[in-house]
Nucleic acid binder design. Structure first.
Lengths: 98, 98
DNA sequence: CTTACAATTCGATACTTATCAAATTATAAA
DNA sequence: TTTATAATTTGATAAGTATCGAATTGTAAG
């Protein structure tokens, strides 16, 4: 991964609201792992103090950085984190690989 | 670590030039580990295509996010990365801890 | 003390972006 | 087909920031 890609990932996590959105998706994915349920965005909208348009905007940036994967579920939108991206990023920053 | 702190760290790494600056410091710290030499900023200034004022600005942001530790060495400035910060960040994002 | 060099501060500018309100699209239910 | 809800798009604005040139400060060497 080059520095352009990595900085794009970091930028996606640099906004506090967007970071909390990401962590919430991660948390729900974890919590719902056994049940097989996914994280539905509509459940998150209420818990964050920003409007739906802004959340839509943030989701697109997270997806664009390959941090999450979204899929339509009828009227709703499901999201899950892309573990490969965050693990590859961590590896570079922690200098696990050179 | 709360999301405000973590987003600040991510923001510090969200600019490509600043990220490369960080990685360069990390690389030199690694390379000079055996010799005990530190990473001198003056050696980096030449290798990045931006002016000294901008580098000074970026360094302050990295230090302010606790990503690096700087120290004056006479006329020069030495920098080394703060491994604790990057490891704690990685842990949260990778959900190693909850 | 003067000179030279590394780094910082200051002021300005161009660019990016987070957020919202309003309008629109997509989908399921009635 | 109409209605209701979820999500997106659009347009606008306010706030933030990366970068530079010029001036300044800190420090060592001559």
């Amino acid at each position: 991964m080059d520095s352009a890609k990595l900085s794009k990932i970091m930028k996606a996590l640099s906004n506090q609201t967007r970071l909390e959105l990401y962590l919430q998706i991660a948390k729900q994915s974890e919590a719902n792992f056994e049940t097989g349920c996914e994280c539905l965005i509509t459940d998150i909208v209420g818990s964050l103090s920003i409007g739906a348009p802004t959340i839509s905007h943030h989701l697109k940036e997270l997806a664009n950085a390959d941090l999450i994967i979204t899929e339509r579920r009828g009227k709703f939108l499901a999201a899950r984190i892309n573990k490969e991206t965050i693990q590859a990023s961590s590896a570079i920053l922690s200098l696990v690989e050179k």
